[in-house]
Design a protein around this nucleic acid. Structure first.
Lengths: 238, 238
DNA sequence: TTGGCAGAGATTGTATCCAATCTTTGCTAT
DNA sequence: ATAGCAAAGATTGGATACAATCTCTGCCAA
């Protein structure tokens, strides 16, 4: 897998902030696992692909580094992040801390239009699960994370939304590295039951289901592998 | 108040990442309210003060913008952020969601050395409260936020620590704008009682006290003032 | 054969230069 | 006198050029 998989942005109607556009392209590529952890992101190469100078590429890479999606080493370059098992644990600990309360908050503010949007999303997830092929798989991974973001937007807190954007994206990296079953589709009906709780206005139940859901995602990980072997991280390099 | 209050970094033993150094200087200046919300941060001027090119200043400002401490307007420049009342509410909502659980987590992982560090911090806060002068006030504001960060480091989750760094810094801006009593010292004994709960290993009580503490900080704010008057934000400019 | 060293090539870090945009100032016409 | 407009100045956005650092390759010696 190389960064050449990345489609260049055609800037015909986007005169504003090209760095942001590049950032989003990489974000999507990382979430959908078209870019493997550890992939080198050369400034010149990226600049060539998007037809911009290194200046704007550096800006995009800096944003991605602050989000934890990219690891940037001085005088060495930028690489798609490879979260350690410890980092993975912290990511899910943060999600366990934030998301149940957020689901409860969403429950208090949800309106019929939100419910409709959530159900529409569930139908999309379901139809993706029936499709075959790697493209559908990618879309499924992506949709699974977006459910959590949709919930965050219902809760109506931009700051938490941004935080969860970071956490879900990094979770995708973690699942790519340590996921056992490969597909993270296991949780679809859990999404569904959370929406049911939301529709019923049962905040406590929504929070509890969300906590269980996160636990299930984390339970599918195998974080033992490189445990206590700091040098083994390097062995992941192709 | 101008950005000239900022002391330049002498880079004699810091050959690495000057942008990071500049970022931290601004972070501290904003937290300690030496830089007022809305202050213009001109790239040339900052570059002159730190004796670096605009390139590295831009990098620092971009980091600060992503943290929410600086608002960056295209072709206009960067300004110290002026959080809206709604933004302030979201910041404290996020803190209410995160910090009680974090206090509980800290309770489970705390060791005697942590307790000692926390008590040392409390003594520092107490002694600052007795001192007079704006310098002591600044240090007090800063120390008050650092208590929460200290707790986050006890909880041992780097990701939450970074998130809370952002939230406490932005809270400082909010208090500068909407704080009623000016001094945020009101909460010192609350810090103390949280440490007591921690020492007793009572996680539930620590969480409850933390929630109350955040509520008290927020209760000192007056968020009505500019409510519903979008244009009044501009009137804050000197 | 293996270890180390040196130099070439490649890549990042920073400064500077030019273009685009905004702001201000001063003039003109109503 | 005031509103509108235009040109000059200032500031940011982006590209390029140069410096610093790293990596890789090949040679030499043990």
């Amino acid at each position: 897998m190389t960064i050449t998989d990345q489609k260049p942005a055609h800037n015909d109607r986007a005169p504003e902030d090209r760095a942001q556009i590049i950032r989003e392209h990489f974000r999507n590529a990382i979430i959908e696992r078209r870019l493997a952890p550890g992939t080198k992101l050369s400034e010149s190469e990226v600049g060539g692909l998007f037809d911009v100078s290194r200046t704007v590429v550096r800006s995009a890479l800096q944003m991605l580094a602050l989000e934890g999606l990219v690891r940037s080493e001085r005088n060495r370059g930028a690489f798609v992040a490879t979260p350690s098992p410890e980092e993975a644990r912290q990511i899910f600990a943060a999600r366990r801390l934030v998301e149940p309360g957020m689901a409860a908050a969403a429950c208090d503010r949800v309106d019929p239009a939100d419910i409709a949007a959530l159900k529409r999303h569930l139908r999309g997830e379901a139809s993706l699960m029936t499709e075959r092929g790697p493209s559908a798989r990618r879309a499924e991974i992506r949709a699974s994370g977006e459910f959590h973001l949709l919930l965050a937007s219902v809760a109506g807190n931009d700051i938490l939304y941004r935080f969860l954007e970071e956490l879900t994206a990094r979770s995708s990296l973690v699942i790519a590295l340590y996921g056992r079953s490969g597909a993270s589709s296991c949780g679809h009906d859990e999404h569904e039951s959370i929406v049911v709780a939301l529709e019923a206005g049962n905040a406590q139940r929504a929070a509890k289901l969300m906590l269980q859901h996160i636990d299930h995602i984390e339970a599918d990980l195998d974080l033992r592998l490189t445990e206590g072997l700091p040098l083994s991280e390097a062995l992941h390099l192709p």
